[in-house]
Amino acid sequence: MNRTIAEKDFKLSKKAMARKDWRKNWQIYLLFLPLAVYFIIFNYIPMVGILVAFEDYSVTKGFFGSPWVGFANFRVLFTGDEFLIALRNTACMAVLNLALGFLPPIILALLFSECHLKPYRRFTQIVSYMPNFVSAVVVCALVTEFFGMSGAITKILTAIGFQEQNWLANTQIPVFWLIYAFIGIWMGAGFGSVIYTAIISSVSGDLKEAAALDGANRWQRIRYVVLPALLPLCMMNLTLSVGTMFLAGWDKVLLLYMPKTYDVSDVLYTYTYRMAFGNSVNFGLSTASGLFQSIIGTTLLIVSNKINKKLTSYGLF
């Protein structure tokens, strides 16, 4: 009884606080309104489209007029001969991308922060950011050239003892996966370092100075002052990267793969693309695949957040 009264009082006080807050900050809430409307219109209402995954969708019949087929689209997706291969490639490439691609931006940011020659630092920063602004099509064209039979990287690899070949056509695991991870690092490391650089620059100089006075060398200052400051951001980025690792950047696979290398390069995205858009458009199948990948992504996001929270006490939510 007492507990119920206390809960009621708490609820009342919460309501009163909310009213008070509204009266005091209504302009701020009003400012938030367009953003809320934007998200509702462009992010939440389109979720009705998930229905398509359970329908034999026809553009003329629309979301609510197309025949309901239940899980038929998922059955087609999961029973395809190449589904398991695509799933394996997606998972392996995603893990490899994360494993190889997570640290370079941090290392680069640390290097930038420790470089005291300003013009050189600025130049290298700009050079490292630039690949991020090159379109995937151009990047893939460059990769095709560099890794082709007479490409520059092929020549280097041949010089150090590898067989001369078109590396993109190599069907050995993990050649294609490594090339793909390399592209991700080349494109994203520089730009990814921006946020870490910003955090490092916000670390108090007094702390570093105090550490130096206490006899800490440069490496120890990084280890005991800078890295602890970066840890929360690293954990947040890691959580987000794990959540989106199944979804991001597969357009490059589409541009680089070929039937010869399907066994090692086909991912869920490209597999679905062929299944849904190979001969003509199958909206149901593509939406089912998208939904499947979103569910995996969300699950990974929640799990990785929990693990992060448990291990480092930093979490997104």
Binding site: V76, G80, D81, E82, P259, Y262, R274, M275, G278, N279, S280, N282
Partner: peptide, 11 residues
């Protein structure tokens, strides 16, 4: 036809 062609062509 679409489903068949997808599998046949890919294979």
């Amino acid at each position: 036809v679409e489903a068949t062609n997808n599998y046949v062509n890919t294979y």
